[in-house]
C-alpha cells in the first residue's frame, strides 16, 4: 500500500500513536526476519568502510540512496509488525515550529536521560550497543549545535553538482556533501546525546530526521533530475556506483533502483 509521509506538524494523534506503537512492537518483537536492533547493527557496520573497502552509508555518494533504502525497509517492517499497512515514517522539518519531543510522541525530556514516558526503559526502550554507559536514551537538544534555518536549507539545495571526486567528506562543490555536513550532521549534533553517536538509531527521531533529509533529496531530484546520481558507471574505487548493490541490502538494491520514490511505495505531503 502506498503511503504518504507527512510532516509531524500535520499528524493526527492516532497517526502518532500508530507510529510509536509500531516502533515498540519492532523493538520488542520482529518482522520479516528483522528487529529494531538489527537497524542499529547495520548503521554501526555500514558507517565504517567495510571489508569490501567501500563506504556505503556515510561520507560517500551513496549517503542518500543508502538511507532511502534503509528507511523504506523500516517502514515495511513497521507495517508488517503492526499489521497496519497505513503506518508511515513522518518527517521532521527542523526549520519549522513543530517539535517531535512531546509526551504523546517521542518523549518530552530533552536534557539528559529519557527516564520516564515514551522511549524510556519503563516503556521497554533500552539502549543497544551504546558507546555511552547507560540504558537510558540520552538527548541534549540545542546544547552542542543550532538547527539549520530555512535560508541555510535553500543555500544547500542550490548546489547543482550531485557529488564529485574525491567522493568523501572533503568535497566542497557537492550537493551530497553539503547536505550531509551542513544539514544532516548538524541536526544529529543539535539533538545530541545518542543522536550524536555512531549508534544514533537508538533514538527514534533518527527516522524523522532522515525522512526529512530524504524529502530534501527528492525535492532536489525534482528540480535537477531524478536520474542524477554520481558516479554513473564503472568501478570507482571505494564508493558505490549507480548500478552497484548497496550492502546490506539485497542484490539489485542499487542507487539507480531507488532513484524514484514512486515504485518504492511512498510519497511526500
Amino acid at each position: 500500500m502506498a503511503v504518504v509521509r507527512k510532516n509531524i506538524a500535520a499528524m493526527t494523534s492516532a497517526e502518532k500513536t500508530a507510529f510509536i506503537n509500531a516502533l515498540w512492537q519492532l523493538k520488542t518483537g520482529s518482522a520479516n526476519g528483522r528487529n529494531y536492533n538489527w537497524y542499529i547493527d547495520q548503521h554501526i557496520t555500514y558507517f565504517a568502510r567495510t571489508n569490501d573497502n567501500i563506504s556505503h552509508a556515510h561520507q560517500s555518494p551513496s549517503f542518500f540512496p543508502w538511507h532511502r533504502e534503509y528507511l523504506r525497509l523500516l517502514e515495511l517492517d513497521l507495517q508488517t509488525v503492526s499489521g497496519n499497512p497505513a503506518v508511515f515514517i513522518p518527517y521532521w522539518d527542523w526549520t519549522g515550529w513543530a517539535s517531535p519531543f512531546t509526551a504523546d510522541f517521542l518523549g518530552a525530556i530533552t536534557n539528559g536521560s529519557v527516564s520516564s514516558g515514551n522511549f524510556s526503559p519503563s516503556w521497554s526502550w533500552t539502549m543497544y550497543r551504546s558507546s555511552i554507559a547507560t540504558n537510558f536514551l540520552q538527548r541534549r537538544v540545542g546544547q552542542n549545535a543550532s538547527r539549520p534555518t530555512a535560508a541555510q536549507v535553500n543555500t544547500v539545495q542550490s548546489y547543482t553538482v550531485y557529488d564529485q571526486s574525491p567522493w568523501n567528506a572533503s568535497v566542497s562543490n557537492s550537493y551530497r556533501n553539503r547536505n550531509e555536513i551542513e544539514l544532516h550532521n548538524r541536526v544529529h549534533n543539535y539533538v545530541g546525546g545518542h543522536m550524536a553517536t555512531r549508534e544514533a538509531p537508538n533514538d527514534p527521531v533518527f527516522w524523522l530526521h532522515h525522512c526529512n533529509i530524504d524529502r530534501l533529496w527528492w525535492q532536489w531530484q525534482n528540480s535537477r533530475g531524478i536520474d542524477t546520481y554520481q558516479p554513473r558507471t564503472g568501478f570507482t574505487a571505494g564508493v558505490i556506483d549507480n548500478n552497484e548493490t548497496m550492502h546490506p541490502f539485497g542484490a539489485g538494491r542499487t542507487p539507480s533502483a531507488v532513484r524514484d520514490i514512486t515504485p518504492l511505495g511512498y510519497s511526500y505531503a
Binding site: 558507517f47 549545535a145 568523501n168 572533503s170 566542497s172 544529529h188 549534533n189 550524536a196 555512531r198
Partner: peptide, 28 residues
C-alpha cells in the same frame, strides 16, 4: 578523516584532517 569545515561565522569553508569517534560521530 579529511573533511570539509563550514564555519558558522560565515568565513570561508576549508578542508582539514579531523578526529571522529563513536561519541562525536557527526562533529569532527
Amino acid at each position: 578523516i579529511s573533511t570539509l569545515f563550514v564555519p558558522e561565522d560565515g568565513s570561508e569553508p576549508y578542508v582539514a584532517m579531523a578526529y571522529i569517534s563513536a561519541i562525536n560521530h557527526y562533529d569532527p
